[in-house]
Design a protein around this nucleic acid. Structure first.
Length: 527
RNA sequence: GCUCCGUUAGUGUAGAUCGGUCCAGCACAGAGGGCUUUCACCCCUUUAACCCGGGUUCAAAUCCCGGACGGAGCACCA
């Protein structure tokens, strides 16, 4: 007995304490030895940031905040060969679009990210050239003119290609010819001597510099030789004093190359951390190339179309940044691949918007319900603006009755339920009055009573309704996350709503208002 | 084919480092109920997982080995 009592006390004391300790991300390895932590976000400016990029951003930002470190926004805007650009194949065609720089900044700002410095990789070509020459000088890189397929054969056989053993002078000359334009795009590259017999074929003798005649949005055609991602970062991670690299595990190969380069130059290695791939498959096709195509075709409304899942699109839909950060951070730095937990993000978002979203009646794909035998000439429904905050008061919806008859609009799904019940069904038109629908026939409904208690005592379903009088309703259009547009009618009060407001359509969901005219409200579905 | 990585309920996670306190916790979703003039919110109850097989051990989700499954890389994309 005494034991039980003691245990009880202990459990109560430990419980809440334990919880507090679990907050936030785990500490960074070796952080106690790092004087001034530096992190980086390295987006490729091919479009605005989407949900898939957000993980990289949020993780780096959060750690920078936790450690009071510096966060660099490094636009990874090096470009590949021209012919790649022309291919419509979405696995290969990636290119920089000028508007992307600002769209990325906009997304970051929305996410609450504070960065201390901006770097453009496209400004740093002379640096890459310099170190490339040093590498060649050290005999660690060479100029290769193999056809890609020919090189692959050497690589697969773990054999050096004929250019690997060229004299340093030849390699230097080869690089110079690349710079001078003596080689055409695609006809020569600089390769790094990582090792021809590495067990992992992905790591053998990677290209570090190649020619591109493509025009760059920032620097035009000033440079025609561009570094590969892993090489430019091998240099910049050191040159920019990076202390931590947090990247997806799909960039694992880059680690190895970077580490080899650091070793050659005698540089201190940077901590590298990986997280698993976050799958957005279930959300639809998220490629930026695809999105751009759909925007061009006019299928998507723009870079903030809900189907793009860009940060802009989330904002426009009514998703707040906090829930996104929350789900991304809760996933931590696991190496396991995961599905993006959209439902959790929605649940978190709802906690924020529910108390501040005013309620309105909306009926999707409405059908008329004809009621007869109504005693009074007019009725007024007065539903709460938001039941979560009664101090906001009530709105008022008045209807006029002519010759005891009235038509209201109701939802087909509610009609189905009424029909399913069979026989005469008592239905409460929310906040208005009760009607009987004989045998589910919505053309023959009859007034039953006004009193709520009458409906309650019979457990009558309560449904949404809209006055069928066009002067007393508005047309409502809702763009769904999958691009579908659904429409219906909403209560007249909707005409005083403002663009940008988040609303709740009762028994339908949350929406964010896009535009309002006298007779029409355009909204996007939040969740 | 080669290489690397991963595998806790429907989804996301906790559990690490120091194997017992885990017949596995939490959140969201699901089911049922209560409250409610919303299928919202709130409250209560409930379903449901340690990939498989060996081993070490008094004791394994946690350590070791093998397998299966999944992902990534093997691009002059990032």
């Amino acid at each position: 007995m005494a034991e039980l009592a003691t245990l009880g006390v202990d459990a109560e004391d430990l419980g809440p304490k334990k919880k507090d300790e679990k907050e936030g991300l785990p500490p960074l390895p070796g952080i106690d030895k790092v004087k001034s932590p530096v992190f980086r976000m390295a987006p490729f400016p091919s479009g605005p940031l989407h949900i898939g990029n957000a993980r990289m951003v949020v993780l780096n930002d959060e750690y920078a905040k936790m450690t009071k470190g510096k966060l660099i926004l490094a636009f990874d805007d090096t470009i590949g060969a021209m012919k790649k650009k022309i291919e419509e194949d979405d696995s290969g065609a990636k290119y920089v679009i000028p508007e992307a720089y600002d769209m990325i900044r906009e997304g970051l700002t929305w996410l609450g990210v504070n960065w201390d410095q901006e770097v453009f990789k496209s400004d740093r070509l002379p640096i890459y050239y310099d170190y490339c020459k040093q590498l060649i000088q050290k005999g660690e890189a060479y100029a290769c003119t193999c056809e890609p397929s020919a090189f692959k054969a050497f690589k697969d056989a773990k054999k050096p290609c004929p250019h690997r053993d060229q004299p340093i002078e030849d390699a230097m000359e080869g690089f110079q010819k690349m710079l001078d334009g003596a080689y055409e795009e695609g006809s020569a590259v600089i390769r790094f001597k990582s090792g021809v017999d590495l067990s992992d074929p992905a790591l053998r003798e990677p290209v570090i510099m190649r020619i591109s005649d493509a025009e760059h949005p920032r620097v035009g055609t000033k440079y025609r030789v561009w570094p590969m991602l892993e090489f430019s970062w091998a240099l910049d991670d050191h040159l920019l004093d990076m202390t931590y690299i947090i990247r997806g595990k799909d960039l694992f190969k880059e680690d190895v190359i970077e580490e080899q380069v650091w070793k050659i130059f005698g540089w201190k290695p940077v901590h590298i951390l990986h997280y698993g791939i976050i799958s957005t498959e279930k959300l639809g096709k998220l490629s930026k190339t695809y999105a751009r195509e759909m925007i061009t075709k006019g299928e998507y409304v723009g870079w903030d179309d809900p189907r793009t899942w860009t940060l802009q699109s989330l904002d426009r839909r009514g998703i707040r940044p906090e829930p996104l950060r929350y789900v991304l951070l809760s996933q931590g730095l696991k190496m396991a691949d995961v599905d993006f937990p959209a439902s959790i993000m929605y649940a978190e978002n709802q906690k924020i918007i529910d108390p501040i979203s005013n309620r309105y009646f909306f009926v999707e794909d409405p059908v008329p319900l004809s009621i007869t035998g109504i005693p009074d000439r007019s009725y007024t429904a007065e539903p709460l603006v938001n039941p979560l905050d009664p101090s906001l008061g009530n709105r008022s919806i008045s209807i006029l009755v002519k010759d005891g008859a009235k038509k209201v609009l109701v939802s087909p799904s509610d009609v189905e339920k009424i029909k399913g019940a069979g026989g005469d069904v008592l239905v409460r038109l929310k906040d208005l009055f009760n009607v009987t629908v004989p045998g589910g026939d919505i053309s023959k409904a009859a007034f039953h009573s006004k009193d709520l208690d009458a409906a309650r005592s019979q457990k009558a379903p309560v449904i949404q309704w809209i006055d069928s009088d066009p002067k007393n309703n508005v047309v409502v259009q809702v763009l769904m996350p999958d691009g579908r547009v659904t429409s219906g009618r909403g209560e007249f009060n909707l005409q005083s709503v403002k663009a940008g407001e988040t609303l709740q359509f009762e028994r339908f969901g949350f929406v964010k208002v896009q535009s309002v005219t006298k007779k029409k409200v355009d909204a996007w579905f939040t969740h």
